[in-house]
């Protein structure tokens, strides 16, 4: 039979764990991200990075993870724009579709290259000062 003091101690430890959990994982969400850029004759022509909150639950398991500094913010657009180079390198490593066409007419050359990340669902956990981003495969 447990004493009253013992019960209080265990209840306190449970509350501590819950508090710790909520302080570490403030919020989490799923986002749809797509990226595309066009290069024409070796000059960057157009670049689009689209980020939107998913309106329904995504399926899949999180794979490779990127951790970005968020400074307490839970605005993914802002976090990514602050760490753009890092995020784009991460996206490149995930894999991009390459579509290249080159036309040579009467010995004059022109080329167009399109690199695309198809719309992919990412799970994002916003902690105190970090955002943990993982694609769902």
């Amino acid at each position: 039979m447990r004493s009253r003091d013992g019960n209080r101690l265990s209840a306190l430890s449970i509350f501590k764990l819950i508090f710790l959990f909520y302080s570490l994982a403030l919020s989490a969400g799923e986002y749809l991200i797509s990226y595309r850029y066009v290069t024409q004759n070796a000059i960057l022509y157009n670049e689009v990075l689209s980020i939107a909150k998913a309106m329904h639950k995504c399926t899949g398991t999180p794979s490779s993870t990127l951790i970005l500094e968020s400074d307490g913010s839970d605005n993914l657009n802002q976090i990514i724009s602050q760490n753009e180079d890092e995020f784009l390198s991460f996206i490149h490593a995930l894999g991009l579709d390459v579509k290249h066409s080159e036309i040579n007419t009467n010995l004059q050359n022109s080329s167009t290259t399109i690199l695309t990340l198809k719309t992919t669902c990412f799970k994002v956990n916003f902690n105190d000062n970090f955002a943990k981003i993982s694609p769902l495969n």
């Binding site: 390198s89 490149h92 995930l94 991009l96 579709d97 390459v98 579509k99 290249h100 007419t105 010995l107």
Partner: peptide, 18 residues
């Protein structure tokens, strides 16, 4: 009159390192 050469590439590239 006109000589045209078209080349196209389509692929998915993953894990390329700079």
């Amino acid at each position: 009159q006109r000589s045209t050469v078209r080349t196209t590439v389509q692929a998915m590239v993953k894990n390329a390192n700079v």
